[in-house]
Write a protein that binds this DNA or RNA. Structure first.
Length: 760
DNA sequence: TGGAATGATGTTTTT
DNA sequence: CATCATTCCA
């Protein structure tokens, strides 16, 4: 049990302060997770009851991993009982327990962004407002930021500053929408993501005995990624910690990248005021990256004004320079990265999982997917359209939700006529009007047609009755059956599964498979064991509790060995031996929308800092000079962030950046060539008087050249020098050659991108 | 009522 | 370029 010996003095000090408030400022790669893990283990080894430890993490996956690591030190039977998870999942759990205090049903639904937006556009329509002025997305973010600052609709409508602002932006009705939205959510027994935090605050403030209960339950509180907490989260933590003051927050101001969703650096500063006698620890030694990477990252972040002084350093090797690569188009960029990955993985014997491609926006993933697929390289995309947001998954989940909570309006509207059962727009409109008039739920209306006089005809009402009977029958079994059995029953008896099965289009097959995958997941879920209660059934209700808060990052990896593609936001907290930060162009990264204020730009810079510090050994920065953006070819300038790195850490592209028309033209030409790339075609000739720029980068090898290479040829390789081709094998698209190089020996090369020149 | 066809409209980043 | 939403027709 000498885990303490595995820590450096600063880390150890942070682990050994058991009681009282403390803040750990942890530079990138400084062993933050290790400190948190060992600290919790240390608490337990010093007699602290796991049940009284609350540990708030940024993702559920981080929580799971940390828990299992703690389990290896103190034993699984102990670690199991720690309250560890994201703010959202922990407080959703508490809200379920205390729901009746807030007059919410215990099995309240959690609305995701889609549900929320659809409800908002419904409200906007009903209020007779112009949806072009009141765009659901904009309205949502306004409401969201109000909630994160704990401004209720009532307070919103009385706040003259806020109202004046809305007036100025031409949206004076925002407050009323907010109020209506809150009422509709309440009526539907639903909370959105922000409500989980907002309502926890309400709960703790309105009911002192409940606050007292949790204050004494959670005698030790730890918060990870503290720099990314918002006011609402700050206040929850502050209230819970007030009694015992055993609060440990860990964060890095340089990695704060969630200001857009209300995260507030101020929370770190508040900490000093709230707990004047706090212990402060700075972890400054980086164990993750090479000196080059650490120092390059330092040279960027130094450009930010807002930061806490610290000096991240490392003992690691110097490592190689950071390669900056220029491509002529987004597709070329994809190709370059894919080929580079192939080369490094074969040459340096790296696993695919050692590689990550990080981008600013999800939309950028496409060119990389295509390029990786062409080379048969396995990859996994995190984020984007997550599994749980796919239509077919949401449809099935909507049945689950409606069975658990009949008032769930969004779920109701989603499935009332899917699969089609002859209940159309007109009927639904009538139902909605009746529900609105009597201030009851849609479910209430269809189950009591006599009371609410909907005006639907008898045959339609019969269909509604059938629907209601079906849902009720699910509801009565909900807690009695294991989740999988129930899920399967619902998928079949609603006709949803058959409906997808009958669709033989490729998309339809994919959807069917997705449903199967969801059901498989549920099988795993219901097969688990509760050691404390072997008879426990893991029901569909249990499954629903956390499904709304699951994200792609939480999905089981099945230890698969794949290249990771994700946004930089999603990469937070992760590390990879080889990292490509791509799309480093002005107006993309930094984003166009961030150029208006210093604060926003600094957040982008921190984001870049996060991206670069994910890399352990090799970091590559990449940009394209042209890129397709919403269908048009646009010209792009390299990102200012590249210039901001001290050039001594960089290996820059050698040829000068060509500008103007000729460039766009080249890209167009490459695009054309790419379209015909599969059939061996003549390399498109450069226009007269224009030399093809850096053929190696733009076009590693012409397809026709690859086909010409034969055993016996003398060839030239960029790095290996002269060599002789011994054998050529494989199908035309994937020809492999064995080449003997006098300098380095025998090599296997994939002709498609080994940069071979035929000499004879 | 349902489906297909057409047109507008939008790209940060996430629980 | 995609997706969505609305509209139009059977």
């Amino acid at each position: 049990m000498n885990y303490l010996n595995e820590l450096n003095p600063a880390q150890r000090a942070a682990v050994e302060q058991l009681d009282g408030p403390m803040m750990v400022i942890a530079g990138a790669g400084s062993g933050k997770t290790r400190v948190l893990t060992y600290r919790v283990a240390h608490l337990i080894n010093n007699g602290v009851d796991p049940f009284s430890i609350l540990s708030l993490t940024f993702t559920n996956k981080a929580a799971r991993e940390m828990k299992s690591r703690i389990g290896t030190i103190v034993g699984e039977s102990e670690s199991r009982n720690i309250w560890m998870g994201t703010f959202h999942s922990i407080f959703a759990r508490i809200l379920r327990i205390e729901a009746d205090h807030l007059n919410y049903p215990r099995n309240f639904t959690i609305y995701d962004t889609q549900d929320t937006k659809s409800l908002l556009s419904d409200i906007i329509k009903q209020m007779g407002l112009d949806p072009k002025v009141y765009k659901p997305g904009v309205v949502y973010s306004r409401i969201s930021s109000a909630k994160n600052n704990l401004i209720s609709p009532e307070a919103y409508l009385q706040n003259s500053d806020v109202l004046a602002e809305d007036h100025q932006t031409g949206k004076p009705k925002l407050g009323e929408i907010y109020l209506a939205y809150k009422q509709r959510c309440f009526k539907a027994g639903a909370m959105d993501f922000d409500d989980l935090l907002f309502n926890t605050n309400v709960l703790l403030r309105k009911f002192p005995d409940i606050l007292h209960k949790y204050q004494h339950k959670f005698r030790y509180i730890l918060v990870d990624e503290y720099q990314d907490t918002n006011f609402s989260q700050y206040l929850i933590v502050k209230q819970l910690a007030a009694a015992h003051q055993n609060i440990c927050v860990v964060g890095d101001d340089a990695q704060s990248i969630y200001a857009f969703r209300g995260a507030n650096i101020q929370n770190i500063l508040n900490f000093k005021q709230d707990y004047p006698d706090f212990g402060q620890y700075k972890l400054e030694q980086n164990y993750r990256s090479t000196q080059t990477i650490v120092n390059a990252a330092n040279s960027i972040i130094a450009k930010n004004k807002d930061q806490i002084q610290k000096e991240v350093w490392t003992d690691n090797d110097q490592g190689s320079q950071i390669v900056v690569h220029r491509s002529y188009s987004d597709n070329e960029e994809g190709k370059f990265v894919a080929e580079n990955i192939f080369e490094i993985s074969t040459r340096q014997k790296k696993h695919h999982k050692d590689f990550a491609i990080l981008y600013r926006t999800n939309a950028q993933s496409r060119s990389f997917e295509e390029a990786l697929r062409k080379l048969n390289l396995p990859y996994r995309i995190y984020g984007g359209l997550s599994f749980y947001q796919r239509k077919e998954i949401k449809d099935l989940l909507a049945y689950f939700r409606l069975s658990a909570n009949h008032k769930d309006e969004e779920a109701f509207k989603r499935v009332i006529n899917y699969p089609g059962r002859g209940i159309g727009k007109t009927t639904i409109e009538k139902l909605v009007i009746a529900a609105g008039d009597h201030n009851v739920s849609l479910w209430e209306v269809i189950t009591n047609p006599g009371t609410y006089r909907t005006g639907v005809n008898n045959s339609t009402q019969a269909k509604l009755n059938d629907f209601a009977t079906m849902i009720s029958s699910f509801a009565s079994e909900l807690d009695k059956q294991p989740a999988y059995e129930m899920g399967h029953l619902i998928a079949t008896s609603t006709g949803l599964l058959k409906n997808l099965y009958d669709d033989k289009s490729p998309e339809g097959v994919g959807r069917y498979e997705n449903i199967q995958e969801l059901l498989n997941g549920m099988k795993n879920f219901s097969d688990q064991n509760d050691p404390d209660n072997p008879d426990r059934i893991f029901s569909l209700s249990d499954f629903l509790i956390d499904v709304a808060l699951l994200t792609d990052a939480d999905a089981d990896d099945d230890d698969d060995n794949k290249i990771s593609l994700m946004t930089i936001h999603a990469a937070k907290g992760l590390e990879f031996p080889v990292v490509y930060v791509v799309g480093l162009e002005e107006n993309l990264f930094p984003s166009q929308l961030s150029l208006n204020s210093r604060e926003d730009l600094e957040e982008e810079r921190r984001l870049f800092y996060v991206a670069l510090t994910r890399a352990e050994e090799i970091a590559t920065l990449s940009y394209a000079t042209t890129r397709y953006r919403w269908g048009n070819l646009t010209h792009a300038e390299p990102s200012r962030f590249i210039e901001e790195i001290d050039p001594k850490f960089l290996s820059l592209p050698t040829t000068p950046t060509p500008k103007g028309y000729s460039m766009d033209f080249t890209a167009e030409r490459n695009k054309f060539a790419a379209r015909h790339a599969n059939k061996p075609s003549q390399p498109s000739a450069p226009p007269p008087g224009m030399k093809r720029a850096t053929p190696s980068a733009a076009n590693p090898i012409e397809a026709s050249d690859a086909n010409l290479i034969q055993p016996g040829n003398q060839v030239m390789h960029e790095r290996f020098g002269k060599g002789k081709v011994l054998t050529v094998e494989g199908d035309p698209a994937n020809k492999k050659a064995t080449v003997f190089f006098p300098k380095v020996g025998q090599k296997q090369l994939l002709l498609r991108f080994a940069k071979l020149q035929i000499l004879d």
